[in-house]
Design a binder for these strands. Structure first.
Length: 489
RNA sequence: GGCCCUAUCGUCUAGUGGUUAGGACACAAGGUUUUCAUCCUUGAAGCCGGAGUUCGAUUCUCCGUAGGGUCACCA
Protein backbone atom coordinates (compact mmCIF):
# COMPACT_ATOMS: atom_id res chain seq x y z
CA UNK A 1 0.00 0.00 0.00
CA UNK A 2 2.89 2.37 0.49
CA UNK A 3 4.77 1.88 -2.69
CA UNK A 4 4.06 5.02 -4.57
CA UNK A 5 7.25 7.07 -4.30
CA UNK A 6 5.45 10.37 -4.78
CA UNK A 7 2.37 9.79 -2.68
CA UNK A 8 2.58 6.86 -0.31
CA UNK A 9 -1.12 6.85 0.53
CA UNK A 10 -2.46 6.93 -2.97
CA UNK A 11 -3.82 3.78 -4.56
CA UNK A 12 -2.61 3.24 -8.11
CA UNK A 13 -3.86 0.41 -10.28
CA UNK A 14 -3.48 -0.36 -13.92
CA UNK A 15 -4.95 -2.42 -16.69
CA UNK A 16 -2.29 -3.55 -19.12
CA UNK A 17 -3.59 -5.31 -22.21
CA UNK A 18 -1.58 -6.14 -25.26
CA UNK A 19 -2.95 -4.81 -28.55
CA UNK A 20 -3.43 -8.25 -30.02
CA UNK A 21 -7.13 -8.15 -30.73
CA UNK A 22 -10.30 -7.51 -28.83
CA UNK A 23 -11.10 -7.54 -25.13
CA UNK A 24 -13.41 -10.24 -23.83
CA UNK A 25 -15.34 -10.42 -20.57
CA UNK A 26 -12.37 -11.86 -18.70
CA UNK A 27 -10.03 -9.03 -19.52
CA UNK A 28 -12.76 -6.47 -18.98
CA UNK A 29 -13.46 -7.79 -15.53
CA UNK A 30 -9.78 -7.45 -14.63
CA UNK A 31 -9.88 -3.88 -15.87
CA UNK A 32 -13.09 -3.21 -13.98
CA UNK A 33 -11.79 -4.44 -10.63
CA UNK A 34 -8.62 -2.40 -10.98
CA UNK A 35 -10.71 0.62 -11.93
CA UNK A 36 -13.19 0.19 -9.08
CA UNK A 37 -10.46 -0.22 -6.51
CA UNK A 38 -8.64 2.91 -7.65
CA UNK A 39 -11.83 4.98 -7.75
CA UNK A 40 -12.93 3.72 -4.37
CA UNK A 41 -9.76 5.24 -2.92
CA UNK A 42 -9.74 8.34 -5.10
CA UNK A 43 -6.65 6.81 -6.60
CA UNK A 44 -5.25 6.58 -10.07
CA UNK A 45 -6.17 4.11 -12.77
CA UNK A 46 -3.73 3.68 -15.62
CA UNK A 47 -4.23 2.09 -19.01
CA UNK A 48 -0.91 0.74 -20.14
CA UNK A 49 -0.34 -0.87 -23.49
CA UNK A 50 1.95 -3.88 -23.46
CA UNK A 51 3.01 -4.05 -27.07
CA UNK A 52 6.36 -5.75 -26.74
CA UNK A 53 5.53 -8.55 -29.11
CA UNK A 54 5.36 -6.80 -32.41
CA UNK A 55 4.65 -10.00 -34.31
CA UNK A 56 1.36 -10.54 -32.51
CA UNK A 57 0.15 -7.00 -32.77
CA UNK A 58 -3.18 -6.54 -34.53
CA UNK A 59 -3.70 -3.24 -36.31
CA UNK A 60 -6.55 -1.22 -34.89
CA UNK A 61 -6.71 -3.08 -31.63
CA UNK A 62 -5.34 -0.15 -29.64
CA UNK A 63 -8.32 1.96 -30.67
CA UNK A 64 -10.65 -0.98 -30.32
CA UNK A 65 -9.71 -1.73 -26.75
CA UNK A 66 -9.94 1.91 -25.75
CA UNK A 67 -13.39 2.07 -27.25
CA UNK A 68 -14.37 -1.04 -25.31
CA UNK A 69 -13.31 0.50 -22.01
CA UNK A 70 -14.95 3.82 -22.78
CA UNK A 71 -18.19 2.08 -23.63
CA UNK A 72 -18.24 0.60 -20.14
CA UNK A 73 -17.23 3.89 -18.58
CA UNK A 74 -13.99 2.40 -17.32
CA UNK A 75 -12.09 5.61 -17.68
CA UNK A 76 -8.36 5.83 -17.20
CA UNK A 77 -6.58 8.75 -15.61
CA UNK A 78 -3.49 8.08 -17.66
CA UNK A 79 -3.15 6.11 -20.84
CA UNK A 80 -1.79 6.06 -24.35
CA UNK A 81 -3.62 9.29 -25.16
CA UNK A 82 -2.70 10.98 -21.92
CA UNK A 83 0.59 9.78 -20.43
CA UNK A 84 0.89 12.51 -17.82
CA UNK A 85 4.29 12.50 -16.20
CA UNK A 86 4.97 8.90 -17.14
CA UNK A 87 6.35 9.87 -20.54
CA UNK A 88 4.40 7.17 -22.28
CA UNK A 89 1.93 4.48 -21.33
CA UNK A 90 2.92 2.42 -24.34
CA UNK A 91 5.72 -0.01 -23.64
CA UNK A 92 7.27 0.17 -27.08
CA UNK A 93 7.89 3.84 -26.38
CA UNK A 94 9.66 3.10 -23.11
CA UNK A 95 12.53 0.97 -24.38
CA UNK A 96 15.18 3.33 -23.01
CA UNK A 97 13.80 2.84 -19.52
CA UNK A 98 14.00 -0.94 -19.69
CA UNK A 99 17.48 -0.70 -21.13
CA UNK A 100 18.60 1.45 -18.22
CA UNK A 101 17.41 -1.12 -15.71
CA UNK A 102 18.87 -3.94 -17.78
CA UNK A 103 22.27 -2.34 -17.74
CA UNK A 104 21.97 -1.83 -14.04
CA UNK A 105 21.47 -5.54 -13.62
CA UNK A 106 24.39 -6.36 -15.91
CA UNK A 107 26.61 -4.09 -13.88
CA UNK A 108 25.56 -5.85 -10.71
CA UNK A 109 26.29 -9.20 -12.33
CA UNK A 110 22.63 -10.16 -12.24
CA UNK A 111 22.02 -10.42 -15.96
CA UNK A 112 23.92 -11.88 -18.85
CA UNK A 113 23.67 -12.46 -22.57
CA UNK A 114 22.33 -15.82 -23.69
CA UNK A 115 24.87 -17.32 -26.11
CA UNK A 116 22.82 -20.29 -27.30
CA UNK A 117 21.03 -20.67 -30.57
CA UNK A 118 17.40 -21.71 -30.60
CA UNK A 119 18.39 -25.14 -31.82
CA UNK A 120 20.74 -25.60 -28.93
CA UNK A 121 18.01 -24.62 -26.51
CA UNK A 122 15.61 -27.00 -28.16
CA UNK A 123 18.03 -29.86 -27.72
CA UNK A 124 18.41 -29.01 -24.03
CA UNK A 125 14.66 -29.11 -23.67
CA UNK A 126 14.40 -32.36 -25.50
CA UNK A 127 17.01 -34.02 -23.37
CA UNK A 128 15.24 -32.86 -20.23
CA UNK A 129 12.02 -34.30 -21.54
CA UNK A 130 13.60 -37.66 -22.30
CA UNK A 131 15.15 -37.75 -18.86
CA UNK A 132 11.77 -36.82 -17.44
CA UNK A 133 12.97 -33.84 -15.51
CA UNK A 134 11.85 -30.25 -15.87
CA UNK A 135 13.89 -28.12 -18.19
CA UNK A 136 15.73 -25.31 -16.43
CA UNK A 137 17.85 -22.88 -18.32
CA UNK A 138 19.96 -22.23 -15.28
CA UNK A 139 21.27 -25.79 -15.51
CA UNK A 140 22.95 -24.67 -18.70
CA UNK A 141 24.05 -21.25 -17.56
CA UNK A 142 27.19 -20.40 -19.57
CA UNK A 143 30.37 -19.85 -17.55
CA UNK A 144 31.69 -17.01 -19.63
CA UNK A 145 28.78 -15.37 -21.38
CA UNK A 146 29.57 -12.86 -24.09
CA UNK A 147 29.02 -9.17 -23.51
CA UNK A 148 25.45 -8.12 -24.19
CA UNK A 149 25.35 -6.23 -27.48
CA UNK A 150 21.61 -6.26 -27.92
CA UNK A 151 21.52 -8.98 -30.53
CA UNK A 152 21.26 -11.80 -28.03
CA UNK A 153 18.58 -12.26 -25.40
CA UNK A 154 19.44 -10.89 -21.99
CA UNK A 155 18.72 -13.24 -19.13
CA UNK A 156 18.30 -12.75 -15.44
CA UNK A 157 20.88 -14.55 -13.34
CA UNK A 158 18.79 -15.93 -10.52
CA UNK A 159 20.78 -15.44 -7.35
CA UNK A 160 18.61 -16.89 -4.64
CA UNK A 161 17.38 -20.22 -5.81
CA UNK A 162 14.88 -20.83 -3.06
CA UNK A 163 11.28 -21.50 -2.28
CA UNK A 164 9.33 -18.29 -2.52
CA UNK A 165 6.47 -17.50 -0.23
CA UNK A 166 4.39 -14.42 -0.74
CA UNK A 167 1.12 -12.92 0.29
CA UNK A 168 -1.87 -12.45 -1.93
CA UNK A 169 -4.76 -10.19 -0.97
CA UNK A 170 -7.26 -12.81 -2.16
CA UNK A 171 -5.56 -16.15 -1.74
CA UNK A 172 -3.56 -15.46 1.39
CA UNK A 173 -0.15 -17.05 1.67
CA UNK A 174 1.07 -18.70 -1.50
CA UNK A 175 4.31 -20.43 -2.23
CA UNK A 176 6.20 -22.30 -4.92
CA UNK A 177 9.40 -24.27 -4.98
CA UNK A 178 12.76 -23.48 -6.49
CA UNK A 179 11.98 -25.50 -9.60
CA UNK A 180 9.78 -22.57 -10.59
CA UNK A 181 12.77 -20.25 -10.68
CA UNK A 182 14.84 -19.86 -13.75
CA UNK A 183 17.04 -17.48 -15.69
CA UNK A 184 14.24 -16.00 -17.69
CA UNK A 185 14.64 -13.60 -20.56
CA UNK A 186 14.48 -9.91 -19.72
CA UNK A 187 15.19 -8.43 -23.13
CA UNK A 188 14.52 -10.33 -26.32
CA UNK A 189 16.93 -10.47 -29.22
CA UNK A 190 14.78 -7.96 -31.08
CA UNK A 191 15.48 -5.41 -28.35
CA UNK A 192 12.03 -5.46 -26.80
CA UNK A 193 11.64 -6.45 -23.18
CA UNK A 194 9.55 -9.43 -22.16
CA UNK A 195 6.34 -9.01 -20.23
CA UNK A 196 8.11 -10.44 -17.21
CA UNK A 197 10.61 -7.62 -17.10
CA UNK A 198 8.69 -4.68 -18.51
CA UNK A 199 5.60 -4.90 -16.37
CA UNK A 200 7.61 -4.92 -13.17
CA UNK A 201 9.61 -1.88 -14.15
CA UNK A 202 6.53 -0.02 -15.32
CA UNK A 203 4.57 -0.85 -12.22
CA UNK A 204 7.44 0.47 -10.16
CA UNK A 205 7.96 3.59 -12.24
CA UNK A 206 4.25 4.33 -12.25
CA UNK A 207 3.86 3.76 -8.55
CA UNK A 208 1.37 0.94 -8.94
CA UNK A 209 0.25 -0.21 -5.51
CA UNK A 210 -2.08 -3.08 -6.39
CA UNK A 211 -1.36 -5.57 -9.13
CA UNK A 212 -4.55 -7.30 -10.20
CA UNK A 213 -4.44 -10.16 -12.61
CA UNK A 214 -5.99 -13.54 -13.23
CA UNK A 215 -4.70 -16.64 -11.52
CA UNK A 216 -2.85 -17.98 -14.53
CA UNK A 217 0.04 -15.82 -13.34
CA UNK A 218 0.37 -17.49 -9.97
CA UNK A 219 2.78 -20.05 -11.29
CA UNK A 220 5.01 -17.31 -12.69
CA UNK A 221 4.99 -15.37 -9.49
CA UNK A 222 8.29 -16.72 -8.08
CA UNK A 223 10.00 -15.65 -11.27
CA UNK A 224 8.48 -12.19 -10.97
CA UNK A 225 9.58 -11.97 -7.37
CA UNK A 226 13.12 -12.87 -8.29
CA UNK A 227 13.09 -9.92 -10.68
CA UNK A 228 11.73 -7.58 -8.03
CA UNK A 229 14.53 -8.78 -5.77
CA UNK A 230 17.22 -8.34 -8.40
CA UNK A 231 16.03 -4.81 -9.09
CA UNK A 232 15.72 -4.06 -5.41
CA UNK A 233 12.02 -3.19 -5.68
CA UNK A 234 9.60 -3.77 -2.85
CA UNK A 235 6.53 -5.78 -3.80
CA UNK A 236 3.18 -4.20 -4.52
CA UNK A 237 0.00 -5.81 -3.18
CA UNK A 238 -0.81 -8.80 -5.33
CA UNK A 239 -4.49 -9.37 -6.01
CA UNK A 240 -5.18 -12.62 -7.79
CA UNK A 241 -8.51 -12.83 -9.58
CA UNK A 242 -10.35 -16.10 -10.14
CA UNK A 243 -10.78 -17.19 -13.73
CA UNK A 244 -14.04 -16.75 -15.59
CA UNK A 245 -14.97 -20.14 -16.93
CA UNK A 246 -16.85 -20.99 -20.07
CA UNK A 247 -20.54 -21.56 -19.65
CA UNK A 248 -19.97 -25.33 -19.74
CA UNK A 249 -17.29 -24.92 -17.07
CA UNK A 250 -14.83 -27.05 -19.01
CA UNK A 251 -12.14 -24.43 -19.18
CA UNK A 252 -11.18 -20.89 -18.62
CA UNK A 253 -12.92 -18.50 -20.96
CA UNK A 254 -10.54 -17.42 -23.66
CA UNK A 255 -10.42 -15.86 -27.06
CA UNK A 256 -9.43 -19.12 -28.68
CA UNK A 257 -12.54 -20.89 -27.57
CA UNK A 258 -15.37 -18.64 -28.29
CA UNK A 259 -15.10 -15.69 -25.94
CA UNK A 260 -16.85 -12.80 -27.60
CA UNK A 261 -15.52 -9.35 -28.25
CA UNK A 262 -17.02 -7.20 -25.51
CA UNK A 263 -18.19 -4.76 -28.17
CA UNK A 264 -20.34 -7.51 -29.65
CA UNK A 265 -22.45 -7.17 -26.53
CA UNK A 266 -22.84 -3.51 -27.28
CA UNK A 267 -23.97 -4.41 -30.78
CA UNK A 268 -26.52 -6.78 -29.28
CA UNK A 269 -27.88 -3.94 -27.20
CA UNK A 270 -26.61 -4.83 -23.78
CA UNK A 271 -26.45 -1.79 -21.57
CA UNK A 272 -22.97 -0.92 -20.39
CA UNK A 273 -24.16 -0.59 -16.80
CA UNK A 274 -25.69 -4.07 -17.00
CA UNK A 275 -22.46 -5.55 -18.32
CA UNK A 276 -20.44 -3.80 -15.61
CA UNK A 277 -22.87 -4.95 -12.95
CA UNK A 278 -22.79 -8.50 -14.22
CA UNK A 279 -19.01 -8.69 -14.45
CA UNK A 280 -18.53 -7.09 -11.06
CA UNK A 281 -20.63 -9.85 -9.52
CA UNK A 282 -18.83 -12.69 -11.21
CA UNK A 283 -15.97 -13.33 -8.84
CA UNK A 284 -16.92 -10.77 -6.26
CA UNK A 285 -19.93 -10.06 -4.10
CA UNK A 286 -20.81 -7.40 -1.56
CA UNK A 287 -21.82 -9.87 1.15
CA UNK A 288 -25.39 -8.59 1.03
CA UNK A 289 -28.42 -9.55 -1.02
CA UNK A 290 -28.06 -6.55 -3.29
CA UNK A 291 -27.60 -7.57 -6.90
CA UNK A 292 -28.36 -4.48 -8.91
CA UNK A 293 -25.68 -1.84 -8.69
CA UNK A 294 -25.00 1.40 -10.44
CA UNK A 295 -21.36 2.12 -11.14
CA UNK A 296 -21.28 4.64 -8.30
CA UNK A 297 -22.66 2.00 -5.93
CA UNK A 298 -20.09 -0.49 -7.10
CA UNK A 299 -17.26 1.91 -6.37
CA UNK A 300 -18.51 2.26 -2.81
CA UNK A 301 -19.24 -1.43 -2.25
CA UNK A 302 -16.29 -3.01 -4.00
CA UNK A 303 -13.73 -4.60 -1.75
CA UNK A 304 -10.81 -6.82 -2.70
CA UNK A 305 -11.19 -8.85 0.46
CA UNK A 306 -14.46 -10.21 -0.87
CA UNK A 307 -13.08 -11.34 -4.19
CA UNK A 308 -13.82 -14.99 -4.84
CA UNK A 309 -11.10 -17.61 -4.99
CA UNK A 310 -12.79 -20.21 -7.18
CA UNK A 311 -13.45 -19.77 -10.86
CA UNK A 312 -16.95 -18.79 -11.92
CA UNK A 313 -18.87 -19.73 -15.02
CA UNK A 314 -20.12 -17.06 -17.36
CA UNK A 315 -23.90 -17.22 -17.37
CA UNK A 316 -25.73 -15.64 -20.24
CA UNK A 317 -29.17 -16.05 -18.69
CA UNK A 318 -28.17 -14.01 -15.71
CA UNK A 319 -26.65 -11.36 -17.92
CA UNK A 320 -29.94 -11.11 -19.81
CA UNK A 321 -31.84 -10.78 -16.57
CA UNK A 322 -29.38 -8.15 -15.40
CA UNK A 323 -29.86 -6.22 -18.62
CA UNK A 324 -33.61 -6.24 -18.10
CA UNK A 325 -33.20 -4.96 -14.57
CA UNK A 326 -31.21 -2.02 -15.82
CA UNK A 327 -33.64 -1.38 -18.66
CA UNK A 328 -36.42 -1.10 -16.10
CA UNK A 329 -34.48 1.70 -14.44
CA UNK A 330 -34.32 3.80 -17.59
CA UNK A 331 -36.50 6.82 -18.26
CA UNK A 332 -39.28 6.52 -20.89
CA UNK A 333 -37.28 8.77 -23.20
CA UNK A 334 -34.18 6.60 -22.89
CA UNK A 335 -36.23 3.50 -23.61
CA UNK A 336 -37.75 5.03 -26.73
CA UNK A 337 -34.28 5.79 -27.97
CA UNK A 338 -33.13 2.28 -27.10
CA UNK A 339 -36.04 0.66 -28.94
CA UNK A 340 -35.83 2.97 -31.94
CA UNK A 341 -32.24 1.93 -32.53
CA UNK A 342 -33.15 -1.73 -32.42
CA UNK A 343 -36.27 -1.53 -34.57
CA UNK A 344 -35.69 -2.82 -38.09
CA UNK A 345 -36.56 -0.68 -41.08
CA UNK A 346 -39.30 -3.10 -42.09
CA UNK A 347 -41.23 -2.01 -39.02
CA UNK A 348 -40.42 1.66 -39.37
CA UNK A 349 -41.80 1.57 -42.91
CA UNK A 350 -45.22 0.31 -41.88
CA UNK A 351 -47.95 2.72 -43.04
CA UNK A 352 -49.05 3.92 -39.62
CA UNK A 353 -45.59 4.11 -38.07
CA UNK A 354 -45.05 7.24 -36.06
CA UNK A 355 -42.95 8.31 -33.13
CA UNK A 356 -46.11 9.07 -31.17
CA UNK A 357 -47.33 5.52 -31.46
CA UNK A 358 -43.89 4.12 -30.78
CA UNK A 359 -43.71 6.10 -27.54
CA UNK A 360 -46.97 4.57 -26.46
CA UNK A 361 -45.86 1.09 -27.46
CA UNK A 362 -42.51 1.14 -25.72
CA UNK A 363 -43.56 0.64 -22.08
CA UNK A 364 -45.51 -2.44 -23.09
CA UNK A 365 -42.81 -3.67 -25.40
CA UNK A 366 -40.13 -3.41 -22.73
CA UNK A 367 -42.03 -5.85 -20.54
CA UNK A 368 -41.58 -8.48 -23.20
CA UNK A 369 -37.87 -8.21 -23.94
CA UNK A 370 -34.57 -8.50 -22.18
CA UNK A 371 -32.20 -7.01 -24.72
CA UNK A 372 -32.31 -5.09 -27.98
CA UNK A 373 -31.89 -8.17 -30.14
CA UNK A 374 -35.22 -9.35 -28.74
CA UNK A 375 -36.82 -6.20 -30.11
CA UNK A 376 -35.42 -6.95 -33.51
CA UNK A 377 -36.51 -10.58 -33.44
CA UNK A 378 -40.00 -9.79 -32.22
CA UNK A 379 -40.36 -6.96 -34.66
CA UNK A 380 -39.32 -9.10 -37.58
CA UNK A 381 -41.79 -11.72 -36.43
CA UNK A 382 -44.49 -9.06 -36.73
CA UNK A 383 -45.22 -8.84 -33.02
CA UNK A 384 -45.47 -5.06 -33.08
CA UNK A 385 -47.28 -4.74 -36.38
CA UNK A 386 -50.58 -4.07 -34.64
CA UNK A 387 -49.29 -0.68 -33.62
CA UNK A 388 -48.38 0.44 -37.09
CA UNK A 389 -50.65 -1.22 -39.60
CA UNK A 390 -54.22 -2.45 -39.92
CA UNK A 391 -53.99 -6.18 -39.33
CA UNK A 392 -54.91 -9.03 -41.61
CA UNK A 393 -56.14 -12.20 -39.97
CA UNK A 394 -58.19 -15.34 -40.38
CA UNK A 395 -61.74 -14.31 -39.55
CA UNK A 396 -62.51 -17.33 -37.40
CA UNK A 397 -59.83 -16.21 -34.99
CA UNK A 398 -62.51 -13.89 -33.65
CA UNK A 399 -64.36 -16.82 -32.10
CA UNK A 400 -63.99 -17.15 -28.37
CA UNK A 401 -64.06 -20.51 -26.59
CA UNK A 402 -67.72 -21.54 -26.87
CA UNK A 403 -68.58 -19.37 -29.83
CA UNK A 404 -69.83 -21.39 -32.76
CA UNK A 405 -70.76 -18.66 -35.15
CA UNK A 406 -69.32 -15.30 -36.08
CA UNK A 407 -72.86 -14.01 -35.89
CA UNK A 408 -72.58 -14.35 -32.12
CA UNK A 409 -69.51 -12.17 -32.15
CA UNK A 410 -70.83 -9.46 -34.38
CA UNK A 411 -73.27 -7.74 -31.99
CA UNK A 412 -70.66 -7.69 -29.25
CA UNK A 413 -68.23 -5.92 -31.53
CA UNK A 414 -70.90 -3.46 -32.55
CA UNK A 415 -71.60 -2.67 -28.94
CA UNK A 416 -67.88 -2.32 -28.21
CA UNK A 417 -67.56 0.06 -31.11
CA UNK A 418 -70.41 2.12 -29.82
CA UNK A 419 -68.93 2.27 -26.34
CA UNK A 420 -65.49 3.11 -27.68
CA UNK A 421 -66.86 5.84 -29.89
CA UNK A 422 -67.84 7.62 -26.70
CA UNK A 423 -64.88 6.52 -24.62
CA UNK A 424 -62.19 8.59 -23.03
CA UNK A 425 -58.96 7.70 -24.83
CA UNK A 426 -56.53 9.45 -22.52
CA UNK A 427 -55.16 6.17 -21.19
CA UNK A 428 -55.56 2.43 -21.50
CA UNK A 429 -57.18 2.53 -18.10
CA UNK A 430 -59.93 4.95 -19.11
CA UNK A 431 -60.63 2.85 -22.19
CA UNK A 432 -60.89 -0.21 -20.02
CA UNK A 433 -63.39 1.54 -17.74
CA UNK A 434 -65.63 2.38 -20.69
CA UNK A 435 -65.94 -1.29 -21.64
CA UNK A 436 -65.93 -2.91 -18.24
CA UNK A 437 -69.61 -2.91 -17.31
CA UNK A 438 -70.65 -4.35 -20.65
CA UNK A 439 -67.91 -6.96 -20.46
CA UNK A 440 -69.11 -8.09 -17.06
CA UNK A 441 -72.60 -8.58 -18.50
CA UNK A 442 -71.67 -10.59 -21.59
CA UNK A 443 -68.50 -12.19 -20.25
CA UNK A 444 -65.05 -10.73 -20.47
CA UNK A 445 -63.63 -13.25 -22.88
CA UNK A 446 -66.70 -12.89 -25.10
CA UNK A 447 -65.89 -9.29 -25.77
CA UNK A 448 -62.21 -8.81 -25.01
CA UNK A 449 -61.01 -11.73 -27.09
CA UNK A 450 -62.61 -10.71 -30.39
CA UNK A 451 -61.87 -7.08 -29.70
CA UNK A 452 -58.23 -7.83 -29.11
CA UNK A 453 -58.06 -10.02 -32.19
CA UNK A 454 -59.61 -7.44 -34.45
CA UNK A 455 -57.23 -4.82 -33.13
CA UNK A 456 -54.08 -6.95 -33.24
CA UNK A 457 -54.87 -9.68 -35.74
CA UNK A 458 -53.08 -12.10 -33.47
CA UNK A 459 -53.68 -14.90 -31.01
CA UNK A 460 -51.24 -13.28 -28.66
CA UNK A 461 -50.76 -9.61 -28.11
CA UNK A 462 -51.01 -6.90 -25.49
CA UNK A 463 -54.47 -6.32 -24.05
CA UNK A 464 -57.10 -4.53 -26.20
CA UNK A 465 -57.14 -1.37 -24.07
CA UNK A 466 -53.44 -0.85 -24.52
CA UNK A 467 -53.69 -1.43 -28.23
CA UNK A 468 -56.63 0.91 -28.55
CA UNK A 469 -54.75 3.57 -26.65
CA UNK A 470 -51.68 3.17 -28.83
CA UNK A 471 -53.49 3.35 -32.15
CA UNK A 472 -56.03 5.96 -31.09
CA UNK A 473 -59.77 6.24 -31.29
CA UNK A 474 -60.18 6.63 -35.03
CA UNK A 475 -58.05 3.65 -35.93
CA UNK A 476 -59.64 1.58 -33.18
CA UNK A 477 -63.14 2.17 -34.52
CA UNK A 478 -61.92 1.48 -38.02
CA UNK A 479 -60.44 -1.89 -37.09
CA UNK A 480 -63.60 -2.97 -35.30
CA UNK A 481 -65.67 -1.94 -38.25
CA UNK A 482 -63.36 -3.90 -40.53
CA UNK A 483 -64.05 -6.96 -38.45
CA UNK A 484 -67.79 -6.98 -38.62
CA UNK A 485 -67.78 -5.86 -42.22
CA UNK A 486 -65.79 -8.97 -42.90
CA UNK A 487 -68.22 -11.09 -40.94
CA UNK A 488 -70.85 -9.89 -43.37
CA UNK A 489 -74.61 -10.08 -43.40
C1' G B 1 3.90 -35.68 -16.23
C1' G B 2 6.20 -31.76 -12.52
C1' C B 3 4.60 -27.55 -9.93
C1' C B 4 0.58 -24.36 -8.38
C1' C B 5 -4.53 -23.01 -7.43
C1' U B 6 -9.62 -24.25 -6.35
C1' A B 7 -14.08 -27.03 -4.27
C1' U B 8 -21.87 -24.80 -0.75
C1' C B 9 -28.31 -26.04 -5.08
C1' G B 10 -27.64 -26.90 -12.64
C1' U B 11 -25.29 -21.57 -12.43
C1' C B 12 -23.62 -16.92 -9.50
C1' U B 13 -23.12 -16.83 -4.35
C1' A B 14 -24.17 -15.75 1.52
C1' G B 15 -22.95 -18.12 5.89
C1' U B 16 -21.50 -20.69 10.70
C1' G B 17 -17.51 -25.15 15.48
C1' G B 18 -24.29 -26.20 17.19
C1' U B 19 -28.50 -22.43 11.41
C1' U B 20 -35.16 -25.25 9.29
C1' A B 21 -27.64 -23.95 5.32
C1' G B 22 -29.98 -17.73 3.21
C1' G B 23 -30.48 -14.92 -1.57
C1' A B 24 -30.41 -14.46 -7.09
C1' C B 25 -30.68 -16.66 -12.25
C1' A B 26 -32.72 -20.80 -14.56
C1' C B 27 -36.57 -24.62 -13.72
C1' A B 28 -41.64 -26.40 -11.86
C1' A B 29 -46.56 -25.53 -9.78
C1' G B 30 -50.39 -22.17 -8.39
C1' G B 31 -52.62 -17.17 -8.49
C1' U B 32 -53.85 -12.54 -11.22
C1' U B 33 -55.36 -12.07 -16.58
C1' U B 34 -59.72 -12.44 -22.77
C1' U B 35 -54.44 -14.27 -25.00
C1' C B 36 -49.12 -13.58 -24.57
C1' A B 37 -45.88 -11.01 -21.50
C1' U B 38 -45.45 -8.69 -16.78
C1' C B 39 -46.45 -9.29 -11.66
C1' C B 40 -47.39 -12.21 -6.95
C1' U B 41 -47.06 -16.85 -4.05
C1' U B 42 -45.12 -21.54 -3.41
C1' G B 43 -41.90 -25.62 -4.61
C1' A B 44 -37.84 -28.77 -6.06
C1' A B 45 -32.62 -28.32 -5.87
C1' G B 46 -26.49 -27.85 -2.42
C1' C B 47 -22.14 -28.18 1.89
C1' C B 48 -17.05 -33.68 -3.42
C1' G B 49 -15.28 -38.29 -0.50
C1' G B 50 -12.55 -40.47 3.66
C1' A B 51 -10.00 -40.08 8.04
C1' G B 52 -8.52 -36.91 12.26
C1' U B 53 -9.42 -32.83 16.10
C1' U B 54 -13.97 -31.96 18.93
C1' C B 55 -19.39 -33.21 23.14
C1' G B 56 -20.50 -31.65 18.07
C1' A B 57 -18.04 -30.45 11.85
C1' U B 58 -20.46 -27.87 5.84
C1' U B 59 -16.94 -24.79 8.76
C1' C B 60 -10.40 -26.55 11.44
C1' U B 61 -6.21 -30.35 9.87
C1' C B 62 -4.51 -34.24 6.74
C1' C B 63 -5.16 -37.62 2.71
C1' G B 64 -7.79 -38.63 -1.57
C1' U B 65 -10.97 -37.23 -5.75
C1' A B 66 -12.42 -33.86 -9.32
C1' G B 67 -11.81 -29.37 -11.96
C1' G B 68 -8.72 -25.43 -13.48
C1' G B 69 -3.97 -23.06 -14.42
C1' U B 70 1.14 -23.21 -15.80
C1' C B 71 5.62 -25.21 -17.57
C1' A B 72 7.88 -19.60 -24.57
C1' C B 73 12.83 -14.77 -27.31
C1' C B 74 3.24 -14.71 -25.57
C1' A B 75 1.33 -11.57 -22.52
Amino acid sequence: MDLNPTNPTKVVTRFAPSPTGFLHVGSIRTALYAYLWAKKHNGTFILRIEDTDKSREVPGSLEHLQESLRWLNINWDYGPDNPGTYGSCIQSERLAIYKKYAEGLINKGLAYADPYTEDELDSFRERAKIEKRPFLYRDHRPENPPAWDGTKPLRLKVKDVKRYTWNDAVRGELSAGEEMLDDLILIKSDGYPTYNFAHIIDDYEMGVTHVMRADEFISSQPKFLSIYDALGFTYPVFVTLPPIMREDRTKKLGKRDGAKDILDYRADGYLPEAMVNFLALIGWNPGTDQEIFSEAELIVAFDITKIQRAGAAFNKEKLLWMNKQHLLRKTPEQLVEYVTKALPDSTKKLPQYSIERLKKLVPNLIERIQVATDVKTASEAGEYDFAFTTPEYEINLLLWKNDTSLMQVKPRLEKAKELLANADFTSAETIKVSLWDYAEQVGKGEIFWPLRVCLSGKKQSPDPFTIAWIIGQVETIKRIKNAYDKIGE
